[in-house]
Structures are given as C-alpha cells and as structure tokens.
Design a protein around this nucleic acid. Structure first.
Lengths: 344, 344
DNA sequence: CATCGTGAGTACAACGTTGCAAAATAGAGG
DNA sequence: CCTCTATTTTGCAACGTTGTACTCACGATG
C-alpha cells in the first residue's frame, strides 16, 4: 500500500504537500499539483482512513445495534439507516445483539465502540431500570420504545396513536368485537403495552366496552406466535369480528390460521397489523396495517446522532430529546369494508 | 476519553506497562497489575481501536457489499455473515450498492476500503467483462454468481443442481408441463441462467421435451414481478401443471396471482421457488423451495476471506478458489403430491 | 532600496497504540 | 559483596495522517 511518503518521494515534494493536494488545498502551483497527481495515479495511492481517523479523532462510522437483522422490521430499518447515513457521508457498522441484555450491555461498554462516532441503539433486552447503562461518554440515540428517564435522545414511532388509528379504522367499518393478539402481561413500557393503550383509548373514545377475553397474550411476536395466538382465540369460542395484531408478523401468522380455519378475511373477520413490513403488501389478502414511517425514523435518528456528534463537548448541549415520528394507516384488503378487490 | 497515558500517570508506571497489562503480558508483578487495573477502572479506560488498528495494520473489520438489505435474501445473508464474523472476532461494515455497477466499482476502488481488512462482495451490476475491476490489493471473496475467470475466491450456491432438484421434485409427483418464471433473456452468467440450465437438465434427464412457451422472462425478481409473470403465463392459455419460479419472491407473487385466479395450489398447479426465505415457510400454502444454505455460505465465505487476510503476502498463496455450498430441497405444501395439510 | 504581503512549500509534532531492544531490579550462587 | 540470570519495567520509534507554525521567493509598495 502506497503512503503519502511514497508519493512524496516519487513526486519530489514533501509529505505535507501531497497531503495538501489530496485535501484540495488551494495554494498549490499547477505544475506541482500535476506532478503529485501523476505520482498518486502511478502508485495507486489511497488515503489510509484509519490513520486519518486517528489524527482527526473521529471515524465517520456510526454503529447500529439491532436484535436480529433477519427480522424484516430490522432489515428494513437497517436499510433506511444505511441510506440516511450514506447520504451524510457516514458508514454503518451493524451489531446484532440477539435482543439479549448481556450483549447489549457488553456492546455499550465494550471497546468496539471506540471505532464509532456514535451509536444508534435499538434495545430489546434492557429494561427501564437500566437507564444508567446508557450513561456513556459517546453519543447514543435510542430507536424504539422509551426507556424511562433515559439520558439519551430517543426516536420513537407513534405506538399509541398508531394503534388507535388501526382500531378506529376497524370501528368505522362497523366492527365491534375487536380481538388483540400479542399483548404482554404486566409490561409497562414497550411496544406491546403502548399499542394496547392505543387500542383501549380508541375503544373508550367510541364507547365500546373493553373485553379482556378478547386479548390474547403472547410473548413472541413472530409469525408462528400469530398463528398460535389465533388458534387460541378461536378455541375460546367467543364472538369476534376483527383482529388487531400488535405487529405485522403476528397478523400474517393469524391470516394463515384464519385461512386454514375457513374464516374469510375480511368478510368474517377484519385484520389489521402494525409495522407495514414489505410482506404485508403481498399477503393474501394484503394486510391493512400501520406504517411507522421507517425512512423518517431512520433519518431523524441519524440526524439527531450526527448533531450530538458535532456538538460534543460544546457548552450548550441540550438535554435528552424525544422525537415521535408520525405513523399512517395503510388501508388494504384485510380490513376493507366488505367486497374483496380483484387483484393486488 | 482516557488514554494509556492517563492511566500510566495515575498508576505511576510507564505507558508501555499499562499496555502490557491491557494485553495480558505475562511478566508483570501482581502488585503492579493491580495498581494498573485500579487506575483503568477509575478512569474507565477503553483501548482506542483506531490507534491500535493503525499500529497493527489491520482493523478487525470486514466489509459486506450487498445490493439492498431490505430484500429478505440479503437481510438473511447479512445476518448469517454478521454472526459468522462475530464468532471469529470480526465486525462487519455493510455497504449497499443498490446493485449498480458504478456504486460497486466505486466501492471496490474507493478509500472506504482502507478501513476494512477484506471485502465480501455480492455483485449485481458487474458483468463477466468486469473481472479486472476485481484486481485489487486487498482480499475479496465473491458471493453469488461466478464472474468468469475472476481473480478472487468465490462462494456460490448450487444454482444448477438446486434447480434440477426442484424440477425433479415436480416431475416425480407426475407434473409434466412445468413453467418457469423470471428467466433472463440472453444472460449467460447469473442465477437466472444457471437455474434455467438446471431446469433444462432435469427435463432432459427425464425425457420431457423443453417447451419455450412455458418460459416467462422477467428482469426483476420481486414479488410484483412474480405476480405479473404469472398473469402473463395465464394469458398465454397454454396448459401447465407446475411452476418453477427462479426465486422465492417470484414464487410468492405467483401464488398470489394463482389464488386470485381461483387456481388451486398444489391441486391444479404445483409451485416451487428457490432461496428458502423466511416467508416461504409462512406463505399460504407454504412454499416448497430450494434452501441454498445461507449459514453455510456465510461461514464458508468468511472463512475464505479470513484465510486470505491471514495469508496476505505469504509466498504460497493459492489461486482463486471456488466453493459450492450444497443446496437442499425443502418440501412443503405448494408442491405436495395432492392433499393439503391441515395447518402449518 | 528596505519593507511588506502573499503564494507556495516545508518541518515538526501529535493522534494512541505496540514492537523492539535496552535498562533496571531482584534473587541466587559463589 | 559481586556476578549472573531471570524477571519486570521502560524509552523510543513507528503506523499514516494533518494542524500549526515556519521558511522562502517573489513582486509590489512606499
């Protein structure tokens, strides 16, 4: 690998002059610049970013910590973050935590971090008691649910309002017995409870009584969980005409069970999910869902992080900020009023 | 950020001694070690990896270049690569190329690379003429289709044999008129043509004549393409009793069209895909497909890359190697012999 | 003609770390 | 008490880059 030194020797100038050429410094004689550029081309010189970063004290790298990339939601989030970061000249190091508290803590306090200017962190294992774990000496922006009183910026989707939108959509089309799939027992903070809050709020607002027997608890939020939760609901043999699944994967699993049970969607039962993953659009029937606006979340988070990185140590650093990105309802077949559309 | 220097000052020893403690050097008096460790704890010292990497000439980072993370196949591949790299003490920087030739070339020759010890590269825009673009001075391992005579190691799935397995599976269940979705006109290298080769080989082996009117060409390989290709096939009004979609997304799109057209799968038409993405398992009916064994591909690729990194400059470097990871057939509902199973 | 300003180029040090080789210390043996 | 060896500690340089401050040459200015 050619270095500045090699180029300088070949061009017959000082190392610093080559550096100046590379960095587009203004006051360089054209003849010199040409000589240097020729030498650069001849040697195939590329600046060594590691050295540059050491010198500069910043790396141009941000970390993104997610539970698992293979879940659509995180893959699509990562896609959006990569793109947002790229547009701002940053590159992204992705870490999978597996959603485990210990991995998350290890990452937060480990030395890996020293390669990054900041961290976008989508915690899953950490609980609201763990706010102190987030007291680190580099910028962190949380993605996802709010850790109570955390010391960091936080970008969240409209969990409560989004869920309420979903439920209002169902109520508007005349559904009254709306089941919920995937609730978490005893949880206070987290998507599950927030979305359940939205559900209850929408019911209350519409004067529909809350019926606990319509709530199916389920710890996991994958498709199999959705399928099983739906089976459980059917076994209860209580009437219901709609299902609000707390995320799309649950909803997709539920669709599968409904299909196998000969229950028509949306004629007999309307289904709404949450997240608007790509598959939702292609499900059969296509899934009505809440779009949390991932691209916007990613951009907001990256911007917040870069602001923190730029403002490091400045005296006027603001306290923790919370950004709530508006969600939107995406009406599709699974909760349409009645007649099924012909083709996607 | 505390540095070795700060720790050394606090502990009253030299910088090098602290470094020795940090690196687990053997000959250190217990009392000294303890003093140093206390200082480290007090200051919260973390080694600066950028500096360490500069010194060491390697970074512990490998790059992974994929077209787009939001496509399930690449998300799951990235997941597997991250995991394989993690287990070997490496961390992964992901770059999205969008599948564009220019982005791919820019990445290969840009300075970003100097942050990485090597690159796992899943090319899409590069063609077989571009072998020279891969002549770079750092280790590269290709993932995916073979670029003819490329100078780098290459890990590929069993495209030909996998496709043949899929088709044999259909033939075995008595299907004779097997359509193909997603062929690429005039392509010589690439998944499309390789899988088509496997299709033709299996037909030939079984003595079934090849009928070009059963082949639907389609450049894109997403679900919408599959849905459209299927519509086109139906419009042709030629008899067919099975569909081999060149990837799962196409197959999932096709399922949707078949469903809307009132054609029963697998009773009227059997469907097989390729890739075994997560959704395949949850489709309705669940999708019979070829599993290319992503975890194995990722491990093989990471191992090959790390070997190259370790063996850099050694005299006995082997030439380009090709690894073909065995694929397996995953039989599910969409191509079962007849009766549909009750539940997933 | 001395002074000044400006453009062009350079030397040095530093970012934080570790390999190398040398130095200091301790204990053992005479 | 001195020598010798083994253990423990250290100083220096270097990885490749760039900020700071400096020098030098040149023509313009008074």
């Amino acid at each position: 690998m050619a270095t500045l030194r090699d180029v300088a020797a070949l061009a017959g100038v000082s190392v610093k002059t080559v550096s100046n050429v590379v960095n587009g410094f203004e006051f360089i004689r054209d003849s010199t610049r040409e000589r240097v550029n020729n030498a650069i081309a001849e040697l195939g010189y590329k600046p060594n970013l590691v050295a540059r970063n050491l010198r500069a004290g910043r790396t141009g790298v941000i970390g993104l910590a997610v539970p698992e990339l293979k879940f659509s939601y995180f893959a699509e989030l990562a896609d959006a973050v990569l793109e947002a970061a790229r547009r701002r000249g940053y590159v992204v190091l992705i870490e999978q935590t597996g959603g485990e508290r210990s991995s998350e803590i290890e990452l937060l306090h480990g030395s890996r971090i020293s390669m990054m200017d900041g961290l976008l962190f989508s915690p899953l294992g950490l609980s609201s008691d763990d706010g102190r774990e987030l007291e680190v000496d580099y910028p962190v922006v949380l993605l996802g649910e709010r850790i109570f009183n955390g010391p960091t910026d936080h970008v969240t989707m409209q969990n409560v309002e989004g869920a309420a939108m979903a439920v209002r959509h169902l109520l508007t089309s005349g559904r009254k017995r709306i089941a919920v799939l995937g609730a978490h027992e005893g949880e206070i903070i987290g998507s599950a409870s927030l979305r359940l809050d939205g559900y209850r709020a929408a019911l209350e607002q519409a004067g529909v009584p809350f019926d606990p027997s319509l709530v199916v608890h389920r710890q996991g939020w994958h498709r199999t969980d959705g399928a099983e939760a739906m089976q459980e609901l059917i076994r209860r043999e209580i009437p219901f005409d709609a299902v609000f699944a707390l995320n799309d994967e649950l909803a997709l699993g539920a669709l599968r069970t409904l299909f196998h049970s000969g229950i028509s969607v949306p004629k007999d039962v309307a289904v709404v999910g949450f997240d608007n993953v790509t598959e939702a659009q292609f499900a059969m029937p296509s899934l009505t869902t809440i779009d949390p606006n991932r691209a916007k979340i990613a951009e907001t988070a990256v911007d917040a992080l870069l602001e923190r990185i730029a403002g490091r140590g400045k005296p006027d650093e603001p306290g923790p900020r919370i950004f709530e990105v508006p969600a939107t309802l995406v009406p599709r077949e699974s909760a349409s009023a009645g007649i099924r559309s012909a083709v996607a």
